[in-house]
Amino acid sequence: MFEARLVNSSTFRKVLDAIKDLLNEASFDCSENGIQLQAMDSSHVSLVSLNLKSDGFDKFRCDRNLTMGMNLTSLGKVFKCSGADDTVTMKAQDYADTVTFMFESKKQDKISDYEMKLMNLDQEHLGIPDTEFSCIIKMPSIEFARIIRDLSQFGESIVISCTKEGVKFSAQGDIGTGNVKLAQTHNFDKEEESVTIDLQEPVALTFACQYLNSFTKATPLSNQVKLSMCENVPLVVEYQIPELGHLRFYLAPKIEE
């Protein structure tokens, strides 16, 4: 028996919104530790890694490890039926081929449930090596989304370069070039507005705008985003989901020929 209850169903809806551009279907691995998802997009350029801790749920029970393959478009349809303030309870029997989502309104005056067919997905699990990153940038997630959106107008790629002076985002294309530089700013009153850089050595890497833009769909999940970079290693873009876990995106760099 698997049962997970989340008072803020909108958090799960935000997670779905953040990954549906990249993935058509994915397996949710449920264990006593929580719910994990790991999947690459169809072109094998980016990877989504979601971790929702069991103790972040309002109720969590998982008697037996369970992998639930889901079509994310269908799952999106189910969550479209939920109210913004609804509580969601997900339930599945052991070895089941369906999962049930029950939505309850705040006042408990409306209860709806939707049963969705599960899929058998043959997804391989990847081992992600521990990396000593050259730099780790933490910045407001809204600012990151804005910069990526702005610079995407200029070209298909964005160079992210980080030095002790700050972080620079650059793009160039037919109409010209764009550069955005951010200095470290520590706002002790408003931690979420700070830009902090933990630098071991300067690094500059090039990434495709299309993927960076997709990642920023996770902005509503978190005030801050963490970018971890190292030469010849995928970029890690991490959004912490308060009290529940994290959503990470890995992106292979573009390499100069």
């Binding site: 690459m40 699990h125 990847l126 292979a252 573009k254």
Partner: peptide, 14 residues
């Protein structure tokens, strides 16, 4: 010109 790398080379299949 630059080419898009794929993730397969970075991660190991478990």
């Amino acid at each position: 010109t630059s080419t898009q790398a794929r993730l397969d080379g970075f991660f190991t299949v478990l």
